[in-house]
Design a binder for these strands. Structure first.
Lengths: 188, 188, 188, 188
DNA sequence: CATGAATGAGCCTTCATTCAT
DNA sequence: AATGAATGAAGGCTCATTCAT
């Protein structure tokens, strides 16, 4: 009756589910909970128990990536030069988005369904906003663009890179080129 | 055995289908051929005859917009200042993409299914490439970005604007802001 | 494009579906559209096309029985003695309900989904109300019970008969006994 | 190997389960053992141990009501006037059935699964039968109806009342009206 | 050419019941 | 005894596409 400390086998199943989802997401396959169940060798209801909706699973898949970006943003805030701090962070962000499609999906979605994801997103937005403001304060960003603008634009860049190229390597290259243009535009 | 000269009623049906599809696309509704048939008061098979796949219908819906852009690009090539010619064209292109979702869909797709669409796309790419090259030749574009890069990026901007804003007006505003940044970046 | 005059094969399918449903209802099996489809050797969607909900199918199954009762009620109104006219009609009604479970289901349901069923139900209620009023006017019914009361009570009698007996014959006998009691009660 | 004397915590769990079930039944919610478990803050398997089937739980929920009716019937047998003894008992029975749906469910079911319920039902039937016989012996009941008939009819009245009215108060009123008709019918 | 009925795979979701802990 | 995670059959419904008329 006390809130259980997560059973070992349950945790293993849950992890299997997330792993399968991770693989599907990376392949660009839409997350269908029945498929996930089958591939994870688990009953459908088990998937539903852990993740009531595809979104919840998607956000869970995205969480580690979001956490890494939060950490990266924090580190960036400690860097000396505001402009390179910002560009460094955005480089990494873009690379993450192109490597892990769940990030773009979650960040482009109008809403989060898990509190943890909401928390991470808010934190990340706050940090990124500060990075941008710092760069602007230093005169390195001359446009009026806010992070609220820039986040969608990063998703747009990822979108563009995915259109432009098929293989991972080429996507990264295109993405970087696009980001350079945008950064140049921000820099004024 | 020459291909028949299109019966009048067939043409009328076809137009009805396209009109319905146009409306659905504008509303952001995914094109379901059954729905299209019903709304056009036409049998499903009629839709399938005219448009074997949803893509064919989508491209047909996009065609007038593509033609308008081709015309606009041709006019731009006659303008004096290469930079304003380019930016003017891109402004109109973005507005078109945000107003008519079929344009972004068709241009972001990896392939065209109708010869006519392929033709229009090729023509448009050629003209846009020349606009870009002319601007670069004039020193107004300093980056190495090609039109082959810029096309996806325009789609990315449209994507970003759609994420950022819900209503049409706001989307146009965001989109223009994003385009400004990118143009600034191109301009160097 | 004109409202089609019902295709022959479509009509055959529809009839097959109704026939299967009829059988299931008579067996007391709940109507599951998937099962109906399988038993009728028809695709699921065909069933859904003809009958969007189980209720629609149930009401269609019930319709002939309702029509027969309407006819019976009309005839009863032409009979001389108001009391025997009423009891005769109620006898037949009960027998119908016990023979065809769809009748009790439809009449006990809080709402009808098909216009035709609504129409039949309204008509039947109107006629039965007149039968009851006529009997009351003749002094043969002394209680204040209205048809609005009596309809549920008829369903209750059918319910009771179904509890009391398993086989059709016994159900009819119990039902008649119950009805006698109620009629005696009405008669005062 | 004697059956253990019931542990205190087990008894508490059992009670919690019954309480929750009571609440659900009163609300007209179908008894789903998973839900019951969750609402009782108890594992599903605990519910299954105490109540192997939904019926067992339902009968347990119904038991106090049945006991009360047994007591009421016994008291009725001590009353002077056989007719008012019977009608008084039936009034209370109906009110109980309309207040506590488990009673109608259990009494309308073809079989009992718990010995205790069977015992109560048998006892109640025996007492009610005697009440009816006594009234008939006194000439107050002229029909040939037996208690074996009357029990289903009581359930039928409850069924009718539930069809006729939505809220508890109205149900009680309709039910009483129906019962009056039936009693009048019995009385002849 | 046109119609629209028919198909059936496929996805989503729920729930009674079992079983490892 | 108790827990609650896991199961997977089962049912509901949709939709792209085919085919008989």
């Amino acid at each position: 009756m006390t809130s259980a400390p997560i059973r070992k086998d349950a945790a293993r199943n849950r992890q299997r589910i997330v792993d399968v989802a991770r693989r599907l997401v990376d392949d660009g396959t839409p997350l269908q909970l029945n498929d996930v169940a089958r591939l994870a060798s688990v009953g459908v209801a088990t998937v539903y128990r852990h993740f009531p909706t595809p979104e919840a699973l998607m956000e869970t898949v995205a969480a580690p990536g979001l956490e890494a970006l939060v950490a990266r943003a924090e580190r960036a805030l400690t860097e000396e030069d505001p402009w390179t701090a910002l560009t460094g962070f955005l480089d990494v962000t873009l690379e993450a988005q192109l490597t892990d499609p769940s990030l773009t999906i979650v960040r482009a979605a109008p809403a989060r369904v898990l509190p943890r994801t909401e928390e991470l997103a808010t934190e990340l937005d706050s940090l990124a906003g500060r990075l941008l403001d710092r760069a602007r304060a230093a005169g390195a960003v001359r446009t009026v663009v806010t992070w609220d603008d820039l986040l969608p634009l990063m998703c747009g860049i990822a979108f563009a890179a995915n259109i432009h190229a098929d293989d991972q390597q080429a996507r990264l290259e295109s993405g970087r080129r696009y980001l350079e243009v945008v950064l140049q535009g921000l820099h004024g």
